[in-house]
């Protein structure tokens, strides 16, 4: 791993750490959106009392940014968990099993994989009460085939390796060998990469839909997406109320993706 990648890992790790800390802390910060409105300090530039300035309704942007992490943090974790856990198991079965079990799993994965993710999420939102949790759940399920495909390739590649065969020959149960020796010891970098990716996707969908305004988080509750949506009515000389959350979205997504990739690469180098 080169010097540049190491720096990238530290930087992206810092971003991930900050987002995770905010995500954990945010629910405990008391915030009442209605009380925060104050029309005598609308669109103030950043200052000591309002570090990132105020928005159209005079609400502190920094505060809304912090509270906005609530919108995607837990749903993102949930989606990543669903996609990675179910995906890893399905991938392992698809890579190891034979006969009808494999055929059914492979077929189901292929089926899920053909659904256009965002379109399907919008379909679900049209029919059911569109909460972010539901959106994240659907996103997690739709990512199962992606995770399963990489895990499956790994399992197939490792399944014929001598040391794995040796473990099985030594009498270890093949389920144990797959769960521990292959999934846990060999595939964790893949899972880290995929988890970061799914988390990034949930952030993307949540902010995207909240930006559009009908699904996702609704005003006055804060989401980075509906904060960006103020761009529609802001005067050109006061860009910070949308610029700040937009930058936060870009930083967080690229940070999570980079962290997933670099951490996984480092893990893969260490395993080899």
């Amino acid at each position: 791993m080169g010097r540049f990648s190491r720096i990238g890992l530290w930087l992206s790790g810092a971003i991930v750490l900050v987002v995770v800390l905010l995500g954990v802390v945010a629910p405990f910060i008391p915030y009442e959106p209605a009380d925060a409105v104050s029309y005598d300090r609308v669109l103030e530039v950043p200052s000591v009392s309002h570090v990132l300035g105020t928005d159209e309704q005079g609400r502190d942007i920094a505060m809304r940014l912090v509270k906005g992490t609530e919108a995607f943090f837990l749903p993102g974790l949930m989606a990543a968990g669903i996609a990675v856990l179910v995906g890893a198991l399905a991938g392992a079965v698809a890579g190891y099993a034979t006969g009808p079990v494999r055929a059914v799993i492979v077929g189901a994965l292929q089926l899920l994989d053909t659904l256009p993710r965002l379109v399907f999420i919008i379909l679900v939102c049209t029919i059911r009460n569109p909460s972010v949790t539901l959106i994240a759940f659907v996103a997690g399920v739709l990512f199962i085939p992606t995770v399963a495909a990489v895990i499956r390739r790994k399992v197939e590649a490792l399944g014929s390796e001598d040391y794995i065969l040796a473990h099985i020959a030594h009498g270890f149960h093949s389920v144990w060998v797959i769960l521990y020796h292959i999934l846990w010891l060999q595939c964790w970098p893949i899972m880290v990469r995929q988890a970061a990716y799914v988390f990034g996707y949930v952030l993307f969908v949540e902010t995207g839909l909240s930006y559009l305004g009908d699904y996702g988080v609704q005003e006055p509750d804060p989401s980075w997406g509906n904060m960006v949506a103020q761009v529609r009515s802001l005067p050109p000389d006061a860009p910070w109320p949308w610029l700040v959350p937009a930058a936060a979205i870009v930083l967080t997504i690229s940070g999570f993706l980079a962290f997933g990739n670099l951490a996984a690469r480092r893990g893969e180098e260490a395993i080899r």
């Binding site: 995207g208 930006y211 937009a246 979205i249 870009v250 997504i253 690229s254 993706l257 980079a258």
Partner: peptide, 8 residues
């Protein structure tokens, strides 16, 4: 730069 969601 290119990691931004398309809508952003």
């Amino acid at each position: 730069v290119t990691a931004a969601p398309a809508f952003v």
